[in-house]
């Protein structure tokens, strides 16, 4: 199981995957936006998206849980 957490304060601009999706290393899970920059959040693991904790438009803080990959 791998937790994907936010590296910075940001807005969730786009949610690319949904719970139950199969993903592999390098896939984009969500796209954050901070300070006019798009920041893709990428999984470093192969697996299934078990939990997805953010919605488009959310403001998330550094360290917040974005997704759990299993």
């Amino acid at each position: 199981m791998a937790e994907v957490r936010a590296e910075m304060v940001a807005n969730v601009w786009k949610v690319v995957v949904k719970e139950g999706d199969t993903v592999s290393d390098g896939d984009t899970l969500v796209i954050l936006e901070s300070m006019k920059m798009e920041i893709p959040v990428i999984t470093e693991d192969d697996g299934v998206v078990r939990q997805l904790k953010v919605n488009e438009g959310d403001v998330i803080q550094e360290g917040d849980l974005i997704a759990v990959i299993e």
């Binding site: 590296e7 910075m8 304060v9 940001a10 901070s34 300070m35 920059m37 920041i39």
Partner: peptide, 10 residues
Amino acid sequence: EDPKRFFPGP
């Protein structure tokens, strides 16, 4: 922003 990768750091 961080001085290495230039990612935002508000």
